[in-house]
Amino acid sequence: MYAFDYHRPKSLRQAVNLLAKVEDAKLLAGGHTLLPTMKQRLAAPANIIDLNGIAELAGIERKGRAVVIGAMTRHADVAESPIVQEAIPALAELADQIGDPQVRNRGTIGGSIANNDPAADYPAACIALGATIITNKRKVPAEEFFTGLFETALEEGEIITRVSFPLPSKAAYMKFPNPASRYALVGVFVAKRGAEVRVAVTGAGADGVFRVGAMEEALKARFSPKSLEGIKVPSKGLNSDIHADADYRAHLIGVMARRAVANATGKA
């Protein structure tokens, strides 16, 4: 790891000011992607702004028909939160499947979303549930937030503060993890809210998380695993690597989607 200057703001305002002032800065949340990347010298920021001292960025609350989660909330806290377990159990279950227990004790929802790893779990939940990403400057619908491989709509000087998840009527997340890394080879989040159904896929897309329109239409007609029978996801545009080729990933999307719908309807 190359040397850097370290800053530890006590408030969001201080963090925003630092971000505007110091050159070549990276925000440090849980650090479980940034620090390994810096060790490999794939990243070498001149300045690190550590968000771990900002109490106002962590916490979970129910606000009407939504659950609002602070950006610095750890995966373990989302997984164990009675509020999340009651309101959106699929989201608590997703958080409980990220990495391993020690990673979940450090990793944060804001860090995961800002990084937009194509195999991360949270982006699928954000898209399927129709979340809103709240920053120090604005509110961004999840659909507009994830713009490509490790790319987001975040601008210079922008910090994620909270993520707001509207409550679904039914939802489930099914993941086929890479057995070594626990990242998703394929993860499918299915959510139904009113007449709206969304199917979001992570781990498979070469450009990151994406929706499967054909599945959504079929599930709108009837929300049952049977509705998905015969729907093939094209393997074009899917990741191929030593762990799984594109055809296998395409196949897994179908399997995981059917299991997710079965789980969401209580027929798993």
């Binding site: 370290y6 530890r8 440090l28 690190i48 550590d50 020690q102 450090r106």
Partner: peptide, 15 residues
């Protein structure tokens, strides 16, 4: 770290 298991190879001392 504050009662929770963490991987100390992936945590800055200053944090």
């Amino acid at each position: 770290l504050d009662g929770r298991a963490v991987k100390s190879c992936t945590t800055l001392a200053l944090t």
